[in-house]
Design a protein around this nucleic acid. Structure first.
Length: 486
RNA sequence: GCCUCCGUUGUCUAGAGGCCUAGGACGCCGCCCUCUCAAGGCGAAAACACGGGUUCGAAUCCCGUCGGAGGUGCCA
């Protein structure tokens, strides 16, 4: 039988990384088995409707290379793939369950329920619906229905015995039926709950494997009871361990940073994100760490899925990102880094190509680029302490000597190329009998104003151009002179 | 509280009774390279939650304890 998986997000306006990973595993499992990956939008919560939210889902999934075989915009034999457009389809199924005794009408209001819930909590108990409306007579129910009293339809879960199922990751799961609450199937507004819609839709869409987070682990028996009530075969379940922000908190929507779009805006690469995400809760069984999407499909195996929650490690993600950037084709890097250069260097006539060569190996995340190259636009105010470097055998006095030595040499260079700058400087240093570091360190400080720079004195001098380099050297000597006098 | 699940270095993990003096990766630290930083090379520190069993032998099996997570919505 063909494997069919589905990713069923609710359109909140953002794609959460935990959700993205769920989508990834659904996609990988389907493709690994030559099956179909289906996208279904679960928008049954009208109060949470967000304009344009489905587009975010499409863009994110496509951006990550996870094309779906069936879905809202591409169609398919089981459409529509947006639950709100399937609205009228669910009620008859619920009524069928009422007829067979597996569900019942409930007229309790939200307020009443809220009161009883609060009362239960006050007593230190946990509220569980008491099947109050299950005991209404047929006539009473009909009278209320005729009178237009608002209602919901609840599942009539058994109170004795136990229900179990086999999860492909967690194994055999057994739950006492007495812990099963009579969950709402159809809400007062006529819309199905997620709990109900997902069962109906998964069946109607022929989903063979449900891949989702462990938050559904304990409601799964209720779903299976529903499948059984309809006489349908339940799908296989693959529950995924939670992605955590830290040891105690789930990587949640409230963290703000957990959205795919945030990472992309910061300058994380989609490939790095996907690669890293795949490894939170799964491993290939060997030491490989770098995977393209096709390679992930090839390597994916649900038996290597973990059960324990995994903490999202920003440092490791950043390392992956830096690795992907280093391995990136230079022309692509140049294209990607240009807007980040522009933020601080626009209009400065800087040679982006050379700067990019210097920067590619040092770029971990693109949003760190502006701060790294800003000194090229304007010499920052700096502390003269920077001239002191033990290992380079440099201090303010040495720096003064070095700059005094370099100044005429630099001025004398007619063709401003890195090679010429290098040769002229090296010759002068050798002639003066000084150490390379003792000259080049102060020079770099004078023209950059900071301890660390992408590239050394020669590269930076070339990037700045002769005029600006000389100006900054003069500035440095002036600073040193002032300090020596003061 | 109740139900369910989980528990190897700071983090992600390998490990399915002897191959483990517990392997890899990130991070951290040190050294080398070097005009800085980064990259690269080399090296170090760092874990089987605890307690009982079973066994000739346990990170691996069983029980308990502790710790953590998820669920307990007319959210999904």
């Amino acid at each position: 039988m063909e494997v069919r998986t589905r990713f069923a997000p609710s359109p909140t306006g953002f794609m959460h990384l935990g959700g993205l990973r769920t989508a990834l595993y659904n996609y990988l499992f389907a493709k690994k088995n030559g099956g179909k990956f289906i996208l279904r939008i679960e928008d049954t919560d009208q109060e949470r409707f967000v304009e344009g939210a489905t587009q975010v889902i499409y863009d994110t999934l496509r951006g990550c290379g996870m094309d779906w075989d069936e879905g809202p915009d591409v169609g398919g034999p089981c459409g529509p793939y947006i639950q709100s457009e399937r609205k009228d389809l669910y009620l008859p199924y619920a009524q069928q369950l009422v007829a067979s005794g597996h569900a019942y009408y409930c007229f309790c209001t939200k307020e009443e329920l809220e009161e009883r819930r609060a009362a239960a909590e006050a007593r230190g108990e946990v509220f569980k619906y008491d099947k109050h409306c299950l005991h209404l007579t047929k006539e009473e129910v009909q009278r209320k229905l005729d009178a237009g009293v608002p209602y919901v339809i609840r599942q009539n879960a058994p109170t004795e015995g136990e229900t179990s199922y086999d999860d492909l990751v967690f194994g055999h799961m057994t739950f006492p039926n007495e812990t099963l609450d009579d969950m709402v199937l159809i809400k007062q507004d006529g819309m199905p709950t997620y709990n109900f819609a997902n069962v109906i839709d998964d069946h109607l869409m022929g989903i063979t494997h449900v891949v989702r987070g462990t938050e559904y682990l304990s409601s799964t028996p209720k779903y299976n009871l529903l499948y059984a009530a309809f006489g349908w075969e339940a799908p296989q379940y693959i529950h995924l361990p939670t992605v955590m922000r830290d040891a105690h908190h789930k990587l949640s929507k409230r963290d703000g940073d957990a959205y795919y779009s945030d990472f992309i805006e910061k300058g994380y690469l989609t490939e790095a994100l996907i690669n890293y995400l795949a490894l939170v809760g799964w491993n290939p069984g060997d030491d490989r760490e770098f995977f393209t999407l096709p390679e992930l499909i090839e390597a994916f195996d649900i038996h290597r899925l973990n059960k324990a929650p995994g903490i999202f490690d920003m440092d490791k993600l950043t390392w992956f990102n830096a690795e992907y950037i280093r391995r990136m084709d230079f022309e692509r890097y140049l294209t990607m880094v240009t807007p980040w250069f522009d933020r601080v260097l626009a209009g400065k006539g800087m040679d982006y190509r050379r700067l990019a060569e210097l920067m590619q190996g040092r770029t971990e995340v693109f949003n760190r680029v502006p701060d790294m190259v800003r000194f090229l636009a304007e010499l920052p105010d700096y502390d003269l302490e920077l001239y002191t470097h033990k290992k380079m055998k440099s201090n303010p006095e040495v720096a003064m000597q070095a700059l005094t030595l370099c100044r005429p040499v630099m001025e004398g260079i007619t063709e401003w190329t890195e090679q010429n700058i290098h040769d002229a400087l090296m010759a002068a240093i050798a002639q003066a009998g000084m150490k390379n570091g003792a000259v080049l360190w102060p020079l770099r400080i004078a023209i950059s104003g900071q301890a660390n720079t992408p590239g050394g004195a020669i590269e930076i001098a070339w990037l700045l151009g002769k005029e600006e380099t000389l100006r900054r050297m003069d500035d440095g000597m002036a600073r040193l002179t002032r300090a020596a006098q003061g």
